[in-house]
Design a binder for these strands. Structure first.
Lengths: 207, 207, 207, 207
DNA sequence: CATGAATGAGTTTTCATTCAT
DNA sequence: CATGAATGAAAACTCATTCAT
């Protein structure tokens, strides 16, 4: 009875547990912030005991780091199926709307959680560990983003050389990240104006 | 002798104390976040007892609200002496650099504290009170920002009608707010590239 | 100008201040209990600064002692105009009703504050100082009470000798104090039943 | 081995902890009053950390409520083995004496804590929650008390009809509760006089 | 005489973390 | 592997008391 489970089984189970914890943490952190959310809240949402969490993460800090680290992949996925900058703007607006409606923690499955994104960015400002994780994500994000911008430029018939590509990419990232802040700070503002403003800028930049 | 202090004197003292507390709070909140900073830390930085803080603010929440509310004025001042969008980009980059060097809490006196800005934005995501304060600032900020954009457009010989002005202003705000995020997330990145990218965009937008 | 006030004037003023403080304290203690009421609350109700209170009372404990001490006089007054035990029961019921309606602190002016009476009794259980004050009142109260009971007995044509008088007085005091507890613990109970029960007992005791 | 503890075991432990806390609370509340006793004092007496108390009671208020609620059962038990009103008076005097000697908090095991009884009554005057708990106990207490009074009346050969029974019961309760107050306010008084006075009254009431 | 700012110790309560079972 | 009881430190907040003015 109860044969020793194969190592893969074990780590599969372990991985599943980690996922459960991270799913719960995402919800809690999004709702209350990294420092406002308690381990006991996470445990409750995850449907497990507080003690068990410490079998999979040494620390609350480790959970925060893991959540922060996830965002790299999410960001990659967000850019994956997208052909042009114009489409990116469109999709992002949709996702922010979805976030407002479905509530916090829905970062996975192609969703986007603006609260978590800002919390991570703010925390990166203070905690060197988090800053390191965030900064480490950047090269990859730049690669993906540049690919998109180049794709977009080529679609517009104006391919860019390396330096111009980088600059155009910087602008696009600022635009996109700034859009999130804009939306968060004044959620009542006219979404259509937002959309058209951004699209106009994309056009002006020949993307 | 020892005349009863005039009421102005009294409230002047009270006001001075409030300022001391807010100065300390700005430093602490910037360093540790709203929920990571403790009242006792604020009291220590302010050089007073914890109890005294409660004579001037009913709550920690009240301090957070006050700090959030301050940002309106700071933002106004930041735009005040600026003629064109190009100049805005230049000044903002300088200020972010200054913040990185002088450390946290230097929001006043024309300074800019990116950490605090992000913390406020993140908190607005969770706390309806903070969201209300932030949202209430927006109309004023739009007015100031539109004035700058129009000034800039006129300087470029291309004045804008109301609708176009609004759209261009949205783009500028996204650009500028996004720049902050970009900088925070990858502080090591080449500042010169950042500068040129943004300026290029400003030019492309005829501002 | 401002001639040195005569000593009587001074102590008259001092006495008036003490009264203001005690009036306020009575209200606060009645509403929140000795330990639940704060000096600052008393100061506010008294319309003066907290510091001033300490010019007239060395301590919070001193105020509590003073309030406790007052009850002797109140109790005397309560018995003063009363002819028979039957009348006492009637008056007490009226006063408890008045207290329920007019709210706390109305101990003076022939009123009766059941909350304060119980608070004092409870505190006497714990604080030896208060116990001493309360116990010191008792001889006087017994004298007054015995006078009433004797009056009542004579009115019924059955004067009592010293020992019997004392015993009958004990019973009357228990009856009357117990009535207060009964009322407080079940304020909804039928007042008429209460009245008749007590009166019946008075009759049975030939008072 | 080391079998998972059965659910009964688990809640048995929890129940035991609650009892430990309530035992400690009884002592502390009796010694210092509800608002004078601190959670840390209760924790110390209970021999546990402050934090642990909050695993079993959400609030200090919840502990106060629980202590208040206990009194119903204590009161029931106090009346249980008693045949006549005369015996009740005898037993009560004994218990008050025991309380004076054994110190505070000995409410359980057929003991009686006058301090706690008065504290609860005083608190009922201020806190609606406590008032509700106290008032909710009353019907049961009346039932028990009426049973005793009827028993006593029958023993005296004079059974009472419903209305008279109620009135006689009111008188007995006032007598008994008032006795507690009398004793507390003047603990030095002659216990024998007290005893004889009450017994005389009981006789006069044909109980 | 009077104020109210100031303090420091104390309050209740929460929380990350550990550990026996 | 999993629980959840237990802890100790720290959080926000209150309060009696003092003191410069």
């Amino acid at each position: 009875m109860s044969p020793a489970p194969s190592p893969e089984k074990v780590s599969a189970r372990a991985e599943a547990q980690r996922v459960r914890i991270l799913d719960a943490a995402r919800v809690c952190f999004s709702e209350r912030g990294f420092h406002g959310a308690s381990i006991s809240a996470i445990a409750e949402v995850a449907g497990m005991s507080q003690g068990l969490i410490y079998r999979y993460f040494t620390n609350k800090a480790a959970i925060i780091r893991a959540i922060t680290d996830e965002q790299r992949e999410e960001r990659r996925e967000a850019l994956a199926g997208i052909a042009t900058c114009s489409e990116l703007v469109e999709k992002l607006l949709e996702k922010i709307d979805a976030w407002r409606e479905t509530g916090p923690g829905m970062t996975c499955e192609g969703g986007f959680d603006a609260a978590l994104f800002l919390e991570v960015s703010a925390e990166a400002t203070r905690d060197p560990d988090i800053a390191a994780v965030v900064t480490a994500q950047e090269p990859q994000i730049w690669v993906d983003f540049e690919a998109l911008v180049q794709r977009s430029a080529e679609a517009a018939g104006k391919p860019l050389d390396a330096a111009a590509l980088r600059r155009r990419t910087v602008v696009m990232r600022c635009l996109v990240d700034g859009l999130i802040l804009c939306y968060v700070r004044d959620p009542a503002q006219d979404r259509e104006v937002l959309r058209r403003s951004l699209q106009e800028a994309v056009t002006a930049l020949c993307l």
